[in-house]
Write a protein that binds this DNA or RNA. Structure first.
Length: 572
DNA sequence: GCTGACTGCCC
DNA sequence: ATTCTGC
DNA sequence: GCAGAATGGGCAGTCAGC
């Protein structure tokens, strides 16, 4: 099959330029021969079946693929599973071969079905941004009049930029492609542009290690600081006809999850406002105690067809930006002007709708204090934003105009623990042949046992991952030790002797349904786990018995803002 | 009707 | 989410 | 610095099997 061959060619290339060229050529061919197929081909390459906000999903994951392969080829399931996980590369190949073989043998609708299986992850170095660039390039070639060979390269670059920009504002391939085929790239920003009701890619922030780095990056620029709330990013669209849509960070339609938010709009919107697009964070909120609740509480909310009267977790909207007001897009406006619109157009209602707490200062100590205050108010940290210059809203971009500062990014602060790898999982893709993730444990001194606390799979350079895999491979044991505490549902590929100690950083500690650290100390039968665990370094100087103890884990958990039962234990 | 595995989507 | 890496 | 690809905890929703 034509597409399959192209994918194969792409997977053999590593350079983005080469990949873009292959995709571009494929798209050109389709445009010239069967333009009506272009949308389908693009969706195929994008690994999607519909725009995110339309909420279609496949419901096919690894487990189903393994089973399907089993049923289709009659190989033993266990064997495939083994190949698939154990020797990733081999199994990747085999899997591909299986699918290839099936494609060859397939009839009628089968190929389509099998290709869908592939959709889980393409992992061939082609993703959205490259596809968009290729689409732009292909459109230049299709536009015979304008492209003079002399400046073809800059034309290609410009076209890629246009397509990416347009996609960030209206992420609907169907619309972009039909506009592209009808009127070409150069007019695309006019023929296909932002429209209320369609989610805009939310602007993202770059991680930053400390206040001094911020002052460094924003040397002569005016900037402002805001609390970074720990909830769910939301983009609220309010249309002229009164319709409301709420979109997630990844452009999923969340309207049905937040009827309470929809209901509150008429109260916090000023009467003069006839339409808007609001950028905000939805945060779980205890209105009786007037307290922000942890993300984990927010995530227990029902997600589909929620009925207003049955809501158990109240929610407060923290608004921080506005992209559209009364028919006028504000994406090109500077933040100070967008903020002015924001403050003028809405009214705060404590516990329901508030503006993100903000301070404008360039004093290191003041910002440091503001960060402390943010953490004290149950926030993750700060977002620091340019205010008047280079301060437009840049959809989908992790722009330098927004920086995020969290306590756990800073070298000197944040929770770091010393933990013992007791098991591992075979890596896939570029981790083939080494372990892809490890199961970590703390040490319970009292019971002399190692209790699982989290898995870890990030923070390793390739070299370190190679070293640790080699080192631990010689410590594999056939069965877990009797003094390992873990859940049966974990199912690692290999178990280890307790030998090494790794220093691990985390953003938070959470009560876990699966991990066993400190079980019986803060909760009678649930353990503690880590949020966003990553490897800092290997502690060559420590023995497993010197790892963080269950008691220490419990202490760190209790020290977290959210978990303090009352305020009496705070220092004066 | 309940349970557990799987999936998708939040972070 | 966080992190690393090829280009 | 971008883009992509490794990987984390944990929730509700879904569905097969008991």
């Amino acid at each position: 099959m034509f597409v399959a061959k192209a994918l194969d060619a792409i997977s053999k290339e590593s350079g983005r330029i080469a990949i873009t060229a292959i995709v571009c050529n494929m798209l050109r061919t389709v445009m010239e021969t069967t333009p009506e197929d272009l949308v389908a081909v693009v969706y195929l390459l994008a690994n999607r079946i519909a725009p995110a906000h339309e909420g279609l999903e496949l419901g096919i994951g690894d487990a189903s693929i393994i089973k399907a392969l089993y049923e289709a080829c009659g190989t033993k399931e266990a064997q495939i599973k083994k190949q698939y996980k154990e020797s990733g590369k081999d199994s990747q190949e085999k899997k591909k071969n299986h699918i290839k073989a099936l494609l060859v043998a397939a009839t009628d609708c089968e190929p389509q079905y099998l290709i869908r299986l592939l959709q889980a992850k393409l992992r061939i170095g082609l993703a959205e941004q490259t596809l968009l660039a290729a689409l732009g390039h292909a459109a230049v070639y299709a536009d015979k009049q304008s492209s003079t060979p002399a400046n073809i390269d800059s034309s290609l670059e410009e076209a890629a930029k246009i397509v990416k920009q347009v996609y960030s504002v209206i992420p609907v391939y169907d619309k972009i492609i039909s506009a592209l085929l009808a009127d070409g790239v150069w007019d695309l920003p006019k023929t296909c542009s932002f429209s209320p009701g369609v989610p805009v890619g939310p602007m993202l922030a770059k991680p930053t290690k400390g206040v001094s780095e911020i002052l460094d990056k924003f040397q002569d620029i005016e900037f402002t600081c805001e609390y970074k709330y720990d909830g769910e990013r939301a983009q609220i669209h309010y249309m002229e006809d009164g319709t409301v849509e709420i979109y997630s960070r990844n452009a999923e339609r969340n309207t049905g999850k937040y009827p309470d938010v929809v209901d509150a709009i008429s109260r916090f919107k000023r009467p003069s406002v006839t339409s808007f697009v609001l950028d905000c964070e939805i945060v779980a909120f205890d209105r009786e105690k007037k307290k922000i609740l942890p993300f984990q509480v927010l995530s227990t909310r029902a997600r589909k067809n929620v009925v207003l009267s049955e809501i158990k977790v109240g929610v407060c909207i923290y608004a921080f930006d506005i992209l559209y007001i009364n028919g006028q897009p504000l994406l090109q406006a500077q933040l100070d002007s967008r903020r002015q619109h924001l403050y003028e157009s809405f009214e705060e209602e404590p516990g329901f709708f508030q503006f993100a707490t903000a301070v404008t200062s360039n004093d290191l100590e003041e910002i440091q204090k503001f960060l402390e205050a943010a953490v004290d108010a149950s926030c993750e940290g700060l977002i620091i934003k340019t205010l008047k210059k280079d301060a437009t809203y840049e959809p989908s971009k992790r722009s330098n105009n927004w920086l995020k500062l969290k306590k756990d990014y800073m070298d000197s602060t944040g929770d770091s623990l010393d933990l013992v790898p007791i098991a591992a999982f075979h890596g896939r893709g570029k981790r083939t042949g080494v372990y892809g993730a490890f199961l970590l444990a703390c040490y319970d001194v009292n019971n002399e046992e190692f209790q699982s606390i989290c898995k870890i799979g990030t923070g390793f350079s390739e070299a370190v991952l190679e070293e640790r895999s080699a080192s631990l491979r010689s410590k594999v044991i056939p069965k877990p030790k009797s003094y390992y505490r873990y859940s049966d549902t974990i199912n690692p590929d290999v178990w280890f002797e307790p030998i090494e100690v790794w220093e691990v950083k985390a953003a938070d500690l959470t009560i876990s349904p699966v991990h066993r650290a400190a079980t019986g100390i803060v909760d009678s039968d649930k353990g503690i786990s880590l949020r966003f665990p990553r490897l800092l370094r290997v502690r060559e100087d420590k023995n497993p018995e010197d790892a963080s103890s269950a008691d220490m884990v419990a202490d760190i958990y209790r020290a977290q803002k959210h978990n303090q039962s009352n305020r009496d234990d705070d220092e004066q």
